[in-house]
């Protein structure tokens, strides 16, 4: 079995052939703006509804990543994708256009890393040569599904996160040149009893810490073996909690821990604790991190997708918020 402990390793590490990241207005004003393929300022993206806009952006991004990889939809063996909307409609409707055999995934905001883990397994297992994966989220569609209407004047606490508008798409290949995915750690669902739906960073931090610890333990590594351990969308609060949870079990990640959600916005943008949403890890990995890996500025990084597995119904019924985290290790070409 290609596994040490709970961590999967790949004999022939799949190559990240191409990536594409498109983002919304808020992200386009943040510190990573120069790394995106495209920034769309209009939340409607010239469509009638926010949901259609999210779909349109995803479709465009998929075409872009295919172009960058110099492939046709026919060349792709499987499409793995997901998003935050009910019944993952964004991914489903994009798959309808692409006509690639499709595996729909839901891991809340961990979906991107879930898709890349599974895609790597399919390739290394010999079931596919080319995999396409994407995940998306959209501020307005998520806000109206999970919280109150957008124009409703409710006051948010300082630790509330800002849902990222954007989508990241990837083409993985058996051969080629690009950063390589060497390991994947599939996390288990953790729940430390958080109830407040405005505080998803705290709900996901235990899962992130658990997956990071599991990964390091399985491979017998320390945090210093990585240039960066970057979580998906914990925000400042969740990042701090993850760091402290790891410190309690004797892992010191002070130097290497970062968070995609926290990296996306600057202090002046008033986004509370930072970004959240499936797009957070999807666009940061597809843009900034991918480019730095390609240039060799990072030797090896671990990306940990984090998801808060709540639904508006479970929230109203008083259930606590379970969290999940999946990690992959990526090395420079």
């Amino acid at each position: 079995m290609k596994r040490t402990g709970k961590t999967v390793y790949f004999d022939t590490p799949p190559v990240m052939l191409a990536t594409s990241a498109m983002a919304g207005e808020m992200e386009g004003k943040g510190p990573l703006k120069e790394y995106f393929d495209k920034v769309v300022d209009d939340p409607y993206f010239q469509t009638q509804t926010f949901e259609k806009a999210e779909r349109k952006l995803c479709g465009m991004n998929c075409q872009n990543v295919l172009k960058k990889a110099n492939l046709q939809p026919d060349d792709i063996d499987f499409l793995l994708a997901g998003d935050l909307l009910n019944q993952i409609v964004t991914a489903n409707f994009c798959a309808r256009e692409l006509q690639i055999p499709f595996i729909g995934l839901y891991g809340a905001c961990s979906t991107m890393i879930e898709a890349l883990s599974l895609g790597s397994m399919l390739i290394d297992g010999g079931y596919a040569q080319h995999i396409m994966a994407f995940a998306s989220s959209h501020y307005q569609t998520a806000e109206r599904q999970y919280r109150m209407p957008i124009e409703y004047g409710s006051q948010y606490p300082p630790y509330k996160q800002w849902t990222v508008t954007g989508t990241g798409a990837y083409v993985l290949a058996q051969n080629g040149i690009g950063p390589k995915i060497t390991h994947a750690t599939i996390g288990k669902v953790m729940d430390f009893g958080i109830i407040e739906p405005n505080d998803m960073g705290s709900a996901m931090a235990p899962a992130a810490a658990d997956t990071i610890a599991q990964h390091l333990k399985d491979l017998g590594r320390t945090p210093d073996d990585y240039d960066l351990i970057v979580t998906g969308d914990l925000g400042q609060v969740g990042k701090t909690l993850t760091r402290e949870l790891l410190r309690e079990i004797n892992y010191d990640v002070d130097e290497v821990l970062e968070d995609c959600g926290a990296m996306l916005y600057s202090q002046e943008q008033n986004t509370g604790s930072g970004g959240s949403g499936a797009a957070a890890s999807a666009i940061v990995l597809a843009s900034y991190l991918y480019q730095k890996l390609t240039l060799g500025e990072f030797q090896r990084i671990m990306v940990v997708g984090t998801g808060a597995l709540l639904s508006p119904v479970s929230s109203l019924q008083g259930d606590t918020i379970p969290g999940i985290a999946h990690g992959i290790t990526i090395e420079k070409p």
């Binding site: 953790m190 430390f192 009893g193 705290s202 235990p206 610890a213 790891l246 079990i249």
Partner: peptide, 21 residues
């Protein structure tokens, strides 16, 4: 090696320590 494990009460205390009110 220890695992990441806390009761909701313990975790809540930790949150209050690190989360801005």
């Amino acid at each position: 090696m220890k695992n990441v494990d806390k009761t909701p009460d313990e975790y809540n205390q930790m949150i209050n320590q690190f989360r801005p009110g």
